[in-house]
Design a protein around this nucleic acid. Structure first.
Lengths: 232, 232
DNA sequence: CTTGCAAAGATTGTACATTATCTGCGGTGG
DNA sequence: CCACCGCAGATAATGTACAATCTTTGCAAG
């Protein structure tokens, strides 16, 4: 048998069945159902989610703290615009953080870890680009597995928060086949670097990988924007 | 005349005269008046700040979003512990971000900018280590001036948020004379690198600078902790 | 000493009052 | 006649009071 390891590593589920108001609004924002700079009225949201105003107000405050919502005194809340600039900002930070996290992973990796990652990689390759959604899940899972045990929880949390935004973005702007091919190639390269215990090379590889993904999403966003402008 | 430029660049003031409940609680947390893991009861805080419970609840939610407060359902809010590990996490991220911000600054710097930075440096040197508080202010101002115009607002906001925490920490654990000497030397080195238009060298210098400051604060925190443990 | 239950205490949700901002209309001056 | 100012009504955010629900705590019984 080849490396046909079944991956059961669960990602931390952000929205359970009985989602809170906070999670619902947050999802509406990052999924784009609530457009950029859209006004968020507490009364509307309260009615929309079948609750009173207080839970909504608290949810908005939390979202403000996380940067998803912008509030001005006595003038209410608006959705933080998730435009190309914002995504570029996020990716530029990830290009700095992910190599550092990867560098550490190379130092503590075990044979068992490599087997797990190989398993994910094998499943992605077995998909043969047929299921983009599963492809994206496995991509996230691959990175998550490497970073999850890192001692710098603040950095990992930051990575995860960024990743959730980017996941939502790539759901709206699907990943091209060419990009998915590149992802596989880069993960394979990364695995080789890890097995060779070459932390510097692995860091450089993941840097290019993140940079490539970022560039791709931004290109997709730009294309979509120009297209919608043409139709207007 | 020598470089006796008066620095009037204002830092964004975080707490104005009529501070909101949010700012008051936030200050109590990062200044240490509210200890690590301390329970935050809405009724207490409301009475303490002469308001009703709702503003307090919303402030706590915002602080939760920013990571200063940890909340568990039906069990209320607690202060996020700002221990040595947390500070180390922050510094490790800054070691990644600040060099990137600096690299960009080197590319866009003008003669006027250099004059301003020289002015700050001159004032720090003129202080001759007499006024630690002003020294810290100028240190922050120096970095702030370099990063303020950067296009990546997300990165700059992150830097600033981290900086505010670190400022509060170094207020509790004063900066040693040796460290202040090192800061001056490193800033001077950085100015030289900038003037030489050597972005790589400037990035490396600021990396060492941030790393050194981080190490110093953590050492101070450890010393204080061991000292208080001895007295107990 | 452990277990269970009841009362106290705290969080979460609802209803309402207050205060500020936005909107549309009419009047006034150029 | 048109532009601008100001004022009232509407609309929405902010603050207060209170009810409902969950957790904790202390005491008594087994």
């Amino acid at each position: 048998m080849s490396t046909t390891l079944t991956v059961d590593t669960a990602l931390p589920e952000t929205l359970d069945s009985s989602s809170s108001v906070y999670e619902l609004i947050r999802d509406d924002i990052i999924s784009g159902r609530l457009g950029a700079n859209e006004r968020l009225k507490v009364a509307d949201l309260a009615e929309r989610h079948g609750t009173s105003t207080n839970p909504v107000r608290e949810a908005l405050q939390q979202l403000r703290g996380e940067g998803f919502v912008v509030m001005t005194p006595n003038r209410g809340a608006r959705v933080r615009a998730m435009d190309e600039d914002f995504i570029r900002d996020i990716y530029e930070i990830e290009v700095l953080i992910e190599p550092a996290l990867t560098r550490w992973f190379v130092r503590i990796v075990t044979d068992a870890d490599i087997a797990v990652l190989e398993g994910m990689q094998a499943e992605m390759e077995r998909l043969n680009y047929a299921d983009p959604v599963r492809h994206g899940e496995l991509d996230t899972l691959f990175h998550h597995y490497m970073y999850d045990r890192h001692y710098n929880r603040h950095a990992v949390d930051l990575w995860w928060k960024h990743r959730e935004i980017l996941k939502a973005m790539s759901r709206r702007h699907p990943t091209s086949l060419a990009r998915r091919v590149a992802v596989l190639r880069e993960h394979r390269q990364l695995l080789d670097d890890i097995k060779a215990q070459d932390a510097d090379k692995a860091a450089a590889t993941i840097g290019r990988h993140v940079e490539g993904s970022g560039r791709h999403i931004i290109e997709q966003m730009g294309a979509a924007r120009r297209n919608s402008a043409r139709l207007r």
